[in-house]
Design a protein around this nucleic acid. Structure first.
Lengths: 198, 198, 198, 198
DNA sequence: ACCACCGGGACAACCCGTTCCT
DNA sequence: AGGAACGGGTTGTCCCGGTGGT
């Protein structure tokens, strides 16, 4: 039993080390050796727990997506007023940006790979579509309660997600080029004007 | 003279080969050798014309940015009606997506690097900020002509650019996950409702 | 008792799995892991029963040599007519070739190592010399009974063994390059003409 | 020109170093790094001249086969008396064994690989069949001149080659187990008795 | 000036046989 | 007997400099 615990610990140390290294230099520029050094394990241990470097990459993404999913779901469940929930979302953007700011570039690495290899996309990228659905349901709910105009919920959701992704994208490469928190908030407001009934 | 022409041709063949290779496998996964093979030149020629692989990459980006800049500027100058110009923009998105769809992933490669290494890469990335300024000016003009509400032009511009970038981003990885052309068009419409006066 | 039986079973499963794997990919190209997977045991078990991969290899060779020894000895004891026994041998060649054809390449692996590293490997390889002695005795017997010419029994035996080994060797790499069964039989006949009295 | 000469030199130094290393430790146990160290070149140079370790292996085999081919062909052309030529061959065996004794184990490495992979066999092993044909023609010639009995030339040739290969094989692993020179000579004599007319 | 080839050497990911602890 | 951990070793690829010929 102790050995299993040790194994789990080793596993998570590798994951943590990989997360840090990937965030620092990017996926490609990070060698397995560095991850091992950082985790304090041998290469043998690394390849005992993971079949490849890519496997830990995808594993990390899975973890993060799950976390993000939980955060979003909790916001959606708390608020019953749809417009207010959307505004809350905009502040989530800021949180995401600050909390995971170090790890966000890793998403870019992944995205760049996924854009070229559809298989890789489906392996882990597909859950992203889930976000669109979540927003879509939220907006559909807003429409049915009469709080929002009768737009196509899917399109509106895609618009929203696109906006959020774009804000992150720009904030990533040019953190001080604008007040991205303000942009997130006011952008959503702008969007809401077109969406809200009257 | 002939020599110079040959040289220029070699240069551009290298650039074209690099563009194709980068688009196919990504910057990191593309070897100088492959570029040379594709361009039909030797490595000696490659390093005679460019100091490094990265230099080719940045050169390519410069070219594309310039092209994009021209396209946008021409749209902005033609239309004097700001809201209509914005809608036209949304169709530009589709054009960009279809025309340069193969080369868009390269932007991601670049962005991922720029997000990490401010020094080297951001020199070329800076022009992206220029787009925001262009939009900002356009919106400011719309406000002064009374066509748009008195919002902060910079924030509104950032919002629009973010939206555009986000649409591209999603369309890149998941081309069939939604009708991105429709999203682009209707998304802009949505924002316009909030922007337009009355 | 049950424990001992289980242990013996595990041992033989490892040996069988190793035999199959070695035959398939060769000694060097076969990993201990594969053998374990195939045998359905853990690496711990493997190294509990055998001190090293090489030990398994040598053990397998021992087994096979013993088997071969028995086969040859039984043929030699049955026939009292020496020339006839030799002809029977030639059919044994075919049997060997067909029955153990999968395992013959392993002998090559062994031979290649033994040719280089006299210390470790030759201990097991030595029994091969035993075959020559067996043949030598047989031929000496044939001479003393007057059935064979008075040749040097050792040299004649070495000649026959060399011929047999050579047929196997060629048949191994080029099974369809000739009818090796025919070659074995007629080759022995040819040598017999030189050996037989009158 | 000078650079081309240097390149050719580098190439042959790599081949020589590889030959020596392979002979010493065997193909598998020899690392590319060791070959490079021995040749005094970098890995870059190695992989500039050869696409893989296996490629230099096959190249070496080609060279050796060619040499052997020449030796055999010269013997065959000098002697017009077939039986005498065969006896001369038996002394060639000794020469081969002594001259190339260091490199012979490499043949075993190759043979072991070729026995498992038919493709590899055809790449370089096929020429071995050529030897059989050479002997076959020689024996056929002997038959037509009335010096040899009317045996199947192909079978007789295969027998001869098998004998030769077997002698080498045994001499390789057990150089002092017998006087292989004597075995070669007397074995051929024995064989000739069965072959020669009257 | 332009180009071609040769060469350098660091480093990549991955896998190996084996040991140790439970 | 199970399986986690070790760490050195494998081949092959990378980007780039240097040197000489056109």
């Amino acid at each position: 039993m102790t050995t299993q615990k040790r194994a789990a610990q080793t596993r998570s140390r590798i994951l943590a080390a990989a997360a840090a290294s990937f965030a620092e230099h990017g996926y490609d520029a990070t060698g397995v050796e560095e991850v091992c050094r950082r985790a304090g394990v041998s290469k043998g241990a690394f390849y005992h727990h993971f079949p490849s470097k890519q496997a830990v990459f995808l594993q990390l993404l899975d973890q993060w997506l799950e976390t993000l999913d939980d955060q979003i779901a909790s916001i959606l469940s708390e608020k019953e007023d749809v417009p207010a929930a959307l505004v809350t979302m905009s502040s989530l953007l800021q949180q995401v940006f600050q909390a995971a700011s170090g790890q966000l570039p890793v998403f870019l690495d992944f995205w760049a790979k996924a854009a070229r290899d559809p298989e890789e996309w489906q392996a882990t990228g597909a859950p992203f579509g889930h976000f669109r659905d979540l927003f879509g349901e939220m907006i559909a709910a807003g429409i049915s309660t009469g709080r929002l105009n009768a737009v196509d919920p899917q399109v509106a959701a895609a618009t929203l997600v696109a906006f959020a992704a774009g804000v992150l994208l720009q904030g990533l490469a040019d953190p001080h080029g604008a007040d991205w928190g303000q942009v997130a908030e006011e952008g959503v407001q702008l969007f809401l004007i077109g969406l809200e009934r009257n």
